[in-house]
């Protein structure tokens, strides 16, 4: 039971880190441009492919990671320059539709590249050794990627928070989100700040892509859909556009997702005699072992309840300098 619980908590934290890496990027861009960048999941997908091909090519892991981050940042910058800058300040619907189009282009472009490289649509991800296997802490065994995923997520997010609140570029992002013309008037180079925000969110998405692919073991050009949706939900839970809200929402979502799995079949996991037979039966009825498969349904019900009763998110109403 203890072992099981610890495993579930680590799963939640690891998923939370991954969602947070994605959600921060969404919140950053939304804050400044009012653009919900649904292509963000596809940026993450492309990162996974760059990592895979770099590793296939025999590059050592650190070099492959640098290549992945650099390549993904370039794609993020190109996306901003070619697709989003021309319609900046336009109707939000136009920007949203553009982001779907960008996503399609990234998916089809990746498909094309895999074809040209004579690879199947779905390929096995060459998970590096440091991200495979399990770590054993006493009786608990946890997939190593989850531990590293959680840890690296926390470190990177802490760095991003410091950057956003302690550097002039980070504060410029807040200012641009707060009042774009006023930011321009003090001499902030808005084009530069927007490009920096896209570069940062692409870099974060690339780390998420590596973690995601290492967990899944397989990659395909459509894998970005679920993570971007989860990141969007995380951002909504936290209060859309708020950076710290996105982080809080992401970890909340991580826990929310493991609860059905953890509670499902809990009656069978309890040591014999721990509870009376009546309570055992009650638990078995309320939390059937199949509960885990309703995970996404439960998450979406929660999302709907959030939107109905706390549309500004968990941190909504609390205004601090975290809405770029």
């Amino acid at each position: 039971m203890d072992v099981y619980l610890i495993q579930q908590i680590v799963n939640a934290l690891s998923a939370g880190s991954l969602y947070a890496l994605m959600a921060v990027g969404l919140a950053l861009i939304f804050g400044i441009l009012r653009l919900i960048n649904f292509a963000h999941g596809d940026v993450m997908m492309v990162a996974a492919y760059i990592a895979a091909f770099s590793l296939f090519a025999g590059l050592p892991l650190p070099v492959a990671i640098v290549t992945m981050i650099a390549g993904t940042v370039l794609i993020g910058l190109a996306m901003e320059r070619i697709a989003y800058r021309p319609i900046r300040g336009g109707p939000e619907v136009a920007m949203l539709l553009t982001s779907f189009a960008v996503g399609q282009i990234l998916q089809n472009g990746t498909l094309l590249v895999t074809r040209l490289a004579s690879q199947p649509v779905q390929i096995a991800f060459p998970t590096p050794d440091v991200l495979s296997g399990v770590v054993a802490i006493g009786a608990v065994t946890i997939p190593r990627v989850n531990v590293i995923g959680f840890g690296s997520g926390v470190i990177i997010l802490a760095g991003v928070m410091l950057f956003l609140t302690r550097t002039r570029t980070g504060l410029s992002m807040h200012a641009a989100a707060d009042d774009l013309p006023a930011a321009q008037l003090v001499g902030i180079r808005v084009n530069w700040v927007v490009a920096a925000a896209f570069a940062l969110s692409a870099a974060l998405a690339s780390v998420a892509g590596l973690l995601y692919a290492s967990q899944a073991g397989q990659i395909n050009p459509f894998l970005g859909f679920s993570p971007v949706l989860k990141a969007f939900i995380a951002a909504v839970i936290g209060g859309f556009g708020s950076i710290s809200g996105a982080v809080v929402g992401a970890y909340a979502l991580g826990f929310l997702e493991v609860i059905p799995t953890a509670l499902g079949g809990i009656a069978d996991i309890l040591p014999p005699g721990a509870v009376s037979p009546e309570i055992h039966d009650l638990l078995a009825t309320v939390f059937p072992s199949a509960l885990g498969s309703y995970r996404d349904a439960i998450v979406f019900v929660f999302l709907i309840l959030m939107l109905l009763f706390r549309p500004n998110g968990i941190l909504g109403g609390r205004a601090r300098e975290d809405t770029p």
């Binding site: 002039r168 807040h174 009042d179 008037l185 300098e321």
Partner: peptide
């Protein structure tokens, strides 16, 4: 006025000197 409402007074001034 258009001050940055979610930034502190110090941060507002800091950004005024961005150039």
């Amino acid at each position: 006025r258009r001050v940055f409402g979610r930034l502190t007074v110090r941060e507002n001034l800091l950004l005024g000197g961005i150039t």
